[in-house]
Design a binder for these strands. Structure first.
Lengths: 99, 99
DNA sequence: TGCTTTGTTCGAATTTTATCGAACAATATG
DNA sequence: CATATTGTTCGATAAAATTCGAACAAAGCA
């Protein structure tokens, strides 16, 4: 996998996005990215094994929630906030602001 | 089951709510209720069997997305929009407005 | 080249969800 | 009382998601 392919924002679908967000590990990732903007996978791994986290990043990526940019040996992730907000106005804001 | 018990809005949790919404049958129920305000289960059953729908209503109810009021032989469902918006501002609006 | 770092992929086990028929319960109505 | 009507509960099956170790791949560095 030299580079990831990300879905075009026109093809985002609500149910996969909600499903991606409806998981503790993934919601934690999303909220962290909401604060710091961009982060590589390693900084987001708490106690969980790499393979589990890789799976969660894949789910988030394929639903359109985040984009992964490869830079050297690191994979930098960031939320696709503008595109998400264009397609589902207010959704990510509600998620990120929820207590 | 003489009457349902609904969670207090103070105990709503984001992940169960997102999970409840992240299903085609349930999202359809939610959107229909968003349009008509209140509806009994029967009017919301399309092709799916009653037992499946009953399960979906239970998931929506237990997460706090909707309230079920028993009136005679019918169970009338409505979204808990005000309470949801107080706890997760903008969330349901984003869901209901999403194309 | 050998070693480290970062993250993916594979495969299998476990857990969770969804689906749906059949039986049941409660309320109304003839 | 007998019969619909409305929806739940039970039980079993099937499908999907999660979890995680181990092996692998790519990039950088000594």
């Amino acid at each position: 996998m030299a580079v990831y392919d990300h879905p075009d924002s026109a093809t985002f679908e609500l149910i996969p996005v909600l499903r991606a967000l409806a998981d503790p590990a993934r919601l934690e990732i999303v909220r962290h990215l909401g604060r710091v903007g961009e982060a590589n996978c390693a900084t987001l791994i708490g106690t969980r094994p790499k393979s589990s986290m890789s799976h969660h990043f894949q789910v988030l990526r394929e639903s359109g929630v985040l984009r992964t940019r490869i830079e050297g040996v690191q994979h930098r992730n960031s939320l696709r906030l503008a595109e998400l907000d264009a397609r589902f106005p207010g959704l990510m804001a509600a998620i990120l602001n929820a207590s």
